[in-house]
Structure formats: C-alpha cells, structure tokens
C-alpha cells in the first residue's frame, strides 16, 4: 500500500522543504522506497536542499506533458538508494500542473512500487498547493510558533477537510499531523513565544514532533544535505523522532524544555 503524504503550511518560509527532504530521507533510511516530489513549479528548491540540482534534466511538468518518462525525470538520491526526487519545473508556471497529470503520475509511482510519496507543497492556497494536497492520505502541517503561521495552518486544515480528494469523495478524511518547527524553548519559557500546548489547543490536531530552532538547518542547506543527516545535531535527532512516530513508534518529545544555564556556563559561556 502506497501512502501519499503532503507537507504543507500555507505560509512560506516555515520549513516545508527542509521537512520534506528530511522526512523522506528518514523513511528511506529505514528501508522504505520513497519518492519526494517538488510541487513548487516556477520556484523549484527541493533539488538544492537535497543537493541534486546539477543532475536535474527532466522535471515533473515534462512528465505530465509527455515530454519525458518518469524514469528519465526521477533522480536517485546520492546517499540513499531507496530515495528518489522528482524536481519541479523552474521555467513553467503553476498552470502547467493538471489534476489528471498529477493523478496519473502518482498512480504510475504507486505501480513502480514506491511505499511513500512525499509531496512538498508550495506556499499559498493556489493551484500548486491544491494539487500537492488533493490526493494526499496524510498531511504534515508545518507550523512556526508565530501568529501568522498558526493562522495560515488553520486555513490549510480547513482546505484539507473540505477540498481534498478524500473530502470530495467522502472517504475517510486525511490524517493530519502538526509539526512545530523553529521552536525556541528559552523564549517559550520567557513568555515570548507561543508554546506547543498553546498551538495544540488552537489547531487541535495530533502533534508529530517539535524541531528546535537551530543554526544547523542553514548549514545543512548550504551543503545540500537534508538536515536529518547532520551528526550530533538536535534537528537531526528531532527529525528522526518524527519519522519514528510517523511509523508508529512511541517516542517522547525532546528539545522542548528549557534548562537554565548554570553558574559555570554563565560565567564561561559556551554554545
């Protein structure tokens, strides 16, 4: 059984592509044949985050318009043999995606034996975002602890429950997961940032993980390595936990509590 997972948020810049890259890499690391699709036609970026930008020849739009086969367009990840990337077109506009084309591509990927299809949604609520979420079985709603992001996530949840294929054809609704990113426990404890409880209260969907705010996300994207591969990083560990929870394991939340620095640390500093 193939599962289609959309990574969405409404708001831009909250970590959808970072999450798509790390989540799909995490699934592949555990032996699941996984493909991650960039739906952001015109503003492709997943290829950069995955570090395969120089190997893009054909893209999603070429496949939909019959100019290339899926096998020609799929890029095998440089580190994980179970992971494939389907890049977005950089030159066309969003209207190049058609509902029939997207559905056919997804069905072809299912027939190729992919266990997980991860759809990296563009920001906004227009064609690209609707296409990315329309056929989803599950949704990871990426949210920052910040008012505009929470509001946009709520809007996206409304769209998932009203306009997706599962909603329109009255099937069981899309399973929705909340992923909090750029979380700063110190600012939460100082009352400067919405807490994960606050956001759970407001959005009322199942929390799948909390990714702490971290400098290593930029370091990962600089190098074109999904953040989940970084050694000794909280972000990588937090993404591993997300994948574990998604696969049904019971993992307690980490990196959500702030520990006041002791006297020694305050005197001598340290990162």
């Amino acid at each position: 059984m193939t599962r289609i997972v959309v990574v969405t948020s409404g708001k831009g810049g909250v970590g959808k592509t970072t999450t798509s890259a790390s989540f799909s890499a995490g699934l592949a690391m555990r032996g699941h044949k996984t493909v991650v699709i960039d739906f952001d036609v015109g503003l492709r970026n997943l290829d950069l985050i995955m570090g395969c930008e120089r190997r893009v020849v054909y893209d999603f739009v070429n496949v939909i318009q019959g100019e290339a086969t899926l096998n020609q367009a799929l890029i095998r990840d440089k580190q994980l043999e179970n992971l494939y990337i389907l890049p977005a077109s950089q030159t066309r506009d969003k209207e190049a995606l058609t509902m029939e084309g997207v559905e056919k591509t997804l069905n072809d990927l299912k027939e190729m034996g992919f266990e997980y299809i991860v759809c990296d949604s563009p920001a906004g609520i227009e064609t690209g975002a609707l296409m990315a979420s329309y056929f989803a079985d599950e949704a990871i709603v990426v949210t920052n602890p910040e008012v505009s992001s929470v509001r946009d996530s709520d809007r996206i949840l409304g769209i998932l429950s009203a306009k997706s294929h599962r909603a329109v054809s009255s099937q069981e609704p899309i399973k929705e997961y909340l992923l909090l990113t750029r979380y700063n426990p110190r600012r939460v404890s100082d009352g400067e940032m919405l807490s994960l409880q606050d956001i759970e209260d407001i959005l009322r969907i199942k929390l799948i993980g909390v990714i702490p705010e971290s400098e290593s996300v930029l370091q990962a994207s600089n190098q074109g390595i999904p953040a989940i591969h970084l050694r000794d990083s909280d972000v990588a560990a937090a993404y591993q936990d997300v994948v574990s929870r998604y696969l049904g394991e019971d993992k307690p939340l980490r990196f959500v509590d702030y520990e006041k620095p002791g006297l020694f640390k305050r005197l001598f500093g340290g990162k």
């Binding site: 400067e192 940032m193 919405l194 807490s195 606050d198």
Partner: peptide, 13 residues
C-alpha cells in the same frame, strides 16, 4: 506575556 496575547488574538480571530 506577549505569547499569551498572541494566543488570545489567535483564538478570537
């Protein structure tokens, strides 16, 4: 705190 102001505003809107 500003976080609780944020929560109240969000819940209302």
């Amino acid at each position: 705190t500003s976080a609780s102001v944020a929560k109240d505003r969000l819940q209302l809107i």
